[in-house]
């Protein structure tokens, strides 16, 4: 009986932890529209695209769609893929924006808006939670954490 109790508590504990982690940690993926010719994009290329250092993929223009500041997915993306702090990113973009050498990617509010932007735009690329991806989109990179 004691064993069953312990087993049940253990299960509940794991369940809580798993449930908690799935809400705190999203499984982010980088996606394009199904009509896009982009297939697999390397981690370094994803980083360079979102920093405006890489403007073409396979000879075609590539346009990153970002998420706005304050978005949890944005925080995870910049921490794990771009590996720059908020202050570093801000300094980096201010050097480009105020010299006319670049513009930070257009940023939208959430995964839904990223998908709305990318849909039917084969040159666009964005990051969303994997659970948001349906057959209209193709995953080109999985964010490893």
């Amino acid at each position: 009986m004691e064993f069953v109790k312990r087993w049940a508590l253990h299960k509940i504990f794991i369940g809580v932890i798993v449930g908690w982690s799935s809400t705190v940690y999203a499984d982010l993926v980088v996606i394009v529209d199904q009509s896009s010719t982009f297939e697999h994009v390397a981690s370094d290329d994803v980083k360079r695209i979102f920093l405006g250092k890489k403007k073409t993929l396979k000879g075609l223009p590539v346009i990153p769609i970002d998420q706005r500041e304050g978005s949890r997915h944005r925080d995870i993306f910049y921490e794990t893929v771009v590996k720059m702090s908020d202050a570093q990113i801000k300094s980096y973009w201010s050097r480009l924006i105020f010299t006319g050498k670049g513009q930070a990617p257009q940023a939208v509010a959430n995964d839904g808006e990223v998908k709305a932007m990318i849909k039917d735009n084969p040159n666009m690329i964005g990051y969303v939670d994997e659970s948001e991806v349906d057959n209209q989109f193709r995953i080109v990179y999985r964010v490893d954490r």
């Binding site: 073409t56 801000k90 300094s91 201010s94 050097r95 105020f98 006319g100 050498k101």
Partner: peptide
């Protein structure tokens, strides 16, 4: 193109490393 761009008008001088963002002290 993604490679070439052209500017015309009144702009920052580009002579030194930081001269194009001389006043943007946040960036340094």
């Amino acid at each position: 193109s993604p490679q070439w761009s052209f500017k015309f008008g009144r702009m920052r001088t580009p002579f030194f490393l930081l001269s194009e963002y001389l006043d943007v002290t946040y960036a340094v």
